[in-house]
Amino acid sequence: MFDLSLPDFDLPTLEAGWVWLAGAGPGDPGLLSLNALNGLRQADVIVYDALVDERILKFARDDAEIIYAGKRGGKPSPKQSSISIKLVELAKSGKRVLRLKGGDPFVFGRGGEEALSLVDAGVPFRIIPGITAGVGGLAYAGIPSTHRGINQAVTFLTGHDQNGVAPDQLDWDALAKGSPVIVMYMAMKHISLITQKLMNGGRSGSEPVAVICNATQQNQHVLETTLGSCAQDIATSGLKPPAIVVVGHVVSLREQLNWIEPALARTSQGTKLEEGSD
């Protein structure tokens, strides 16, 4: 067991009546920041999202109150307004509150909405960034977000709006023509419509696409496909959200840069050898 004691330098103090909005990263507990870990070890109450790996919660104090506030599409979920009200109530009661969100709280995480609710209520807060799945998930799949000679820009977008439908306020033609790499969150539900819009905007049906499910976790699965075949391949694969979809020629680099699967294979083989050592 490795030592997870915090280093000997000043880290911020989570004070009574404060809320820290912290990103837990895309899944792998090792991607948690020191500031987020620091908050976990001080908080009286931790309010966490559906995509936070529960192993991360083991860093909390034994007497901390743990409150689940996860929202999953198509399932009964707390309303965003209720979560914001709860954070205010907890802080006003003098609790030290850690709001733990998957990925980064300000990247499709509605952290801005929660922070504004705290501002309106006069509750002091701190933002702790996290590694977002659109960066960390690609890295764990062996796909660079940017690569010299392939792209000098990348676009992050959500595959559905607040009403659960494909966002119609996006200029899909401009995205298709102007962004060499497109990274999509929450896009599986409307992937057929989205891929068609991109191809209608001029993208080739043969352009590489990767679908990364359960990014950075041990059950991560990556489907490599093309823009034209993406929707059908997802349907026949049986893959389910959460997933990140990346469109662009950076996907082709995965053939050389896929480091995680060999690493997991070595770990698995080492475990088998250890089990058979008797």
Rank of each mutant, 00 (worst) to 15 (best):
K95I: 08
P208R: 07
R148D: 14
G30S: 08
G149Q: 10
V45W: 04
L227A: 11
K197F: 04
T225G: 03
P12L: 01
R61C: 12
G70H: 04
I85R: 13
R266S: 12
G74A: 09
T216Y: 12
G94F: 07
E224V: 13
D278Y: 13
D171R: 09
S81Y: 05
K71N: 12
N214L: 04
N200D: 15
V119I: 15
D44E: 07
R126A: 09
P262Q: 12
A215W: 01
S33T: 15
F2I: 13
S84Y: 08
V47K: 05
L32V: 11
G228R: 04
L118I: 09
N38G: 14
I83W: 05
G23W: 02
A166Q: 04
L239F: 13
I66R: 10
L239K: 04
M186A: 02
T236K: 15
W20S: 07
A121K: 05
K75Y: 10
K92S: 06
I127R: 00
V45R: 05
A139Q: 15
S77C: 02
L257M: 13
G23E: 05
P76S: 06
A64K: 10
S204H: 10
L157Q: 01
G202P: 04
S204P: 11
R148G: 09
A22H: 09
A141T: 01
A265R: 12
